[in-house]
């Protein structure tokens, strides 16, 4: 009797592959004032700006990757090169098997770029008119377009907003309509450039929930840049930290947090008073009063130290927290700048 062993193989497919990607611009350099202007007219001086320097990364199918870095780090330029809007100066880019700069029709059917600060909706008309234009351009039949508008509209909780002039919509409603317009052709690769920019907290949450659902339902791959760390923490399992056109970190957000902050803060309230020196050996006491202490404890020793604390003191309340991620990332940017 033979035993047949089935081994399930999950094939991981690289969808975005970037090798040695560079982009440099030649820009005019002009001294201030009238004299500077005249000099500039006669002898034009230009300098070369390296917006992106030798980027290397790969993104697998279905991943949601956060692209973070300070302003002017090269995030938008990279996203635009991945969409084929900007031609790279050097290096290789493959997105879904296509070279983006050639803007192949099939490639354009696969991708979408959503920008928080720019919109494609026709300002004077309701969003439904932009949707009709997009349906025609992507060759969707009326019935198919209507079905998708209903489906995505439900996910985004958009109804009568679609028939109100765009100029009468709130920023949050406009962003949701913009998402619908950009995703009508059901792209499998999404590039998002600060999609929650300027939105209130509720609208930000809606957009994030929608993106998670879209990723789950359609298996879409998402590369997202944002200055809001909540976007990154709630959406991305992996982050790329970029500055001055170079990648400084590629990995999970937890690992980055752990690397940046090896300690966790523990706040403890006691039912009776204790002396400060009684906490020696637990970690660095950064705040103390008779009935309260805040101690920084090494992540690796957290469980054992907490156990000892609870055993040795009469604790009435205990809170373990991480330093705010914004602060950590901000410090990391500073570290990069000084490196």
């Amino acid at each position: 009797m033979s035993i047949v062993l089935f081994v399930g193989i999950v094939e991981v497919m690289t969808l975005i592959s970037v090798r040695n990607l560079t982009k440099s611009y030649r820009i005019a350099k002009k001294s201030p004032g009238l004299v500077g202007t005249i000099k500039h007219l006669v002898a034009r001086k230009t300098i070369v700006i390296e917006a992106v320097k030798s980027l290397d990364f790969q993104i697998e199918q279905g991943e949601i990757v956060g692209f973070i870095g300070p302003n002017g780090a090269g995030k938008t330029t990279t996203l635009k090169m991945l969409c084929g809007l900007i031609h790279p100066t050097g290096g290789d880019v493959l997105v879904g098997g296509f070279e983006p700069r050639l803007r192949d029709t099939e490639f354009l059917h696969k991708i979408a770029l959503i920008m928080g600060q720019k919109q494609q909706l026709i300002w004077d008309l309701p969003p439904i008119d932009t949707l009709k234009v997009n349906a025609a351009v992507y060759g969707l039949s009326n019935s198919e377009a209507n079905r998708r508008i209903k489906e995505l509209g439900d996910m985004l909780q958009l109804e009568e907003e679609l028939t109100r002039p765009v100029r009468k919509l709130s920023l949050g409603e406009r962003m949701k309509a913009e998402l619908l317009a950009s995703l009508l052709h059901r792209p499998s690769i999404l590039f998002l450039d600060e999609p929650t920019l300027g939105l209130d907290l509720n609208a930000q949450i809606r957009v994030r929930e929608f993106l998670i659902n879209y990723n789950k339902i359609y298996g879409a791959t998402i590369l997202l840049s944002s200055h809001y760390m909540s976007d990154i923490t709630s959406l991305c399992s992996r982050v790329l930290v970029i500055d001055k056109g170079t990648i400084y970190y590629d990995g999970s957000l937890e690992d980055l947090t752990r690397r940046l902050s090896p300690y966790r803060g523990v706040k403890i309230k006691f039912s009776k008073p204790y002396l400060k020196n009684e906490f020696t050996g637990f970690g660095q006491v950064i705040e103390y009063s008779e009935y309260f202490a805040q101690i920084l404890i090494k992540r690796s020793e957290l469980t054992s130290k907490l156990y000892q604390l609870l055993k040795s003191f009469s604790v009435i309340d205990l809170e373990v927290s991480d330093p705010p991620i914004e602060e950590l990332i901000g410090e990391f940017y500073q570290e990069i700048k000084t490196s």
Binding site: G84, L113, K118, Y138
Partner: peptide, 9 residues
């Protein structure tokens, strides 16, 4: 806004 036009097939 040319971006949006260039991204259409």
């Amino acid at each position: 806004s040319l971006d949006f036009i260039l991204l259409k097939p």
